[in-house]
Structures are given as structure tokens and as C-alpha cells.
Design a binder for these strands. Structure first.
Lengths: 110, 110
DNA sequence: TCATATGCTTAGACTCTCTAGGCATAGACG
DNA sequence: CGTCTATGCCTAGAGAGTCTAAGCATATGA
């Protein structure tokens, strides 16, 4: 019964998406691949989680979307960070650091 | 819209409970207070999350429970770690370290 | 021709947390 | 004596985020 990394994913997926978009506008599929690469395939980014997350974030105005074309000539929905999104990423990063260090510190106790 | 620490809690509560019980058998209320103290009140441990978590863990045989009496003379349900629970904690600790360092590393990028 | 990779969408299930209520008693304080 | 707070446990239902699994479309390579 090894702990599934996905158990921990709650809340961090949106932050990872925001972080990905600081590299420039990108579309869902590429965002997922970039994250998986960045975390060294520690866990998969499922489409059923990714796209709903993007819709939530668009609704919250953290990102804006428009249809475009990928390098491979496919129709893609391009997302880009808004100022709100940038602020949120900064806030999330601080919150994550506080949370993760708190947990890590407890688990490291004698 | 600051990120609520609870967004990140998923999956870690059980691990924190296991960790708490390495200090010896304890009851729910005290476990909650110990965790809150250990994390410096970074977030509250709600009873509506704590007790269901303890039941899940008992079902998974990570802990065993028996009724006893607290130092204050109250009827309490004492939980103690099983060998399974100890193994789970070790596994969880490794999984958490892998996950949290992966996320932290991504967020620290350029 | 067929498989694979690229891409987006979404319904329903699952799981975990929270809210919010209930119940019970000990001790402090007026 | 009455009341308030802290100590304790239980649980139904809501809310939120993830996953499974399906559908749809097309480019590319074998």
C-alpha cells in the first residue's frame, strides 16, 4: 500500500500550471508534458484533471485563453498568465513553501 | 484569494497521525492538539477530518484502538501504531519527500 | 492500412476534507 | 447553584479536486 503521489497533488496542480505558463503562453497538452518532464515523471498529469483545472483558472481569471495553432499545425487552445495569475503564483509559492516545510519538519522529528 | 493550507492537506493528515503515534499511544483529541502544535498552528486539524481518518486507518490496520482513560479522567479511545502502520509511515515519509522536493524544485526554477 | 502521438471535452465515480450539528462531563468562576 | 470553557467522541451531508473512461479529430510513421 504505497502512497500514491496523486494523494498529495490536491491544490498543487494549479500552481504547477501557473508556473509552466511563466515560460510563455502554452496549450493544455504541452503544459501537461512540460510538468511531467519537470517533475521527472514522478506522477502523470491526467487530462481529466488538467482541463478542468484550466477551466477553473480561466474562471478565476488567473489565465486567459484563445484558439491558435500549434507548431504541428493543430488547433490548440493557448493559455497565458494574467497579472492575477502571476500574483496567485507568487502567493501559492509562499503558501506551498510554508506548508511543505512544516510537514517535512514534523516528519523529520526524532 | 490566498491559497488555503487545507488545499494541500490531502493525503498528509494520515501521515501526520502516524507520526504522532510514534510518540506512544494517544487519543484523537490529543493527536489533533499535538499536530497543531508541531506545525505551529499553520492550519487547524478539524475533528470532522481527524476522526474519519482514524477510522480509515484502523480499517487499514495501520492503528489499533481501545478504550481507556485520559489523565483528566475522561473516557478516551486510545490509538496505537501497528507494525503495518510503522511501515506505512516509513513509506509515506519517502513518498512525501519525493513529492515535495519535486514540487519545490519546479517552483524554484528560473 | 493501422498504430501512435497530438489535442480537446466531459460525465460520473471516488476520496478526502469541511461544516455543523449532536452528545457527554470536568473544572473554573460568578 | 448556574454557566461557560475545555475536553472528548460521533456523523450526515456538502464541497472540491482528482481520476477513469469514453468520445471526437487529425497528422505522422511504419
Amino acid at each position: 500500500m504505497s502512497r500514491d503521489p496523486v494523494d498529495y497533488l490536491h491544490g498543487t496542480l494549479e500552481t504547477l500550471i501557473l508556473k509552466t505558463l511563466t515560460r510563455g503562453p502554452n496549450h493544455g497538452y504541452a503544459i501537461a508534458r512540460w510538468i511531467e518532464d519537470a517533475i521527472d515523471d514522478a506522477f502523470p498529469v491526467e487530462e481529466g484533471s488538467l482541463y478542468p483545472a484550466l477551466y477553473r483558472m480561466e474562471k478565476k481569471a488567473w489565465v486567459e485563453a484563445e484558439w491558435g495553432t500549434s507548431e504541428l499545425g493543430r488547433r490548440v487552445k493557448l493559455y497565458r498568465l494574467t497579472r492575477e495569475g502571476r500574483r496567485q503564483l507568487a502567493s501559492d509559492t509562499v503558501a506551498w513553501a510554508a506548508f511543505s516545510t512544516a510537514i517535512t519538519r514534523v516528519l523529520a522529528r526524532g
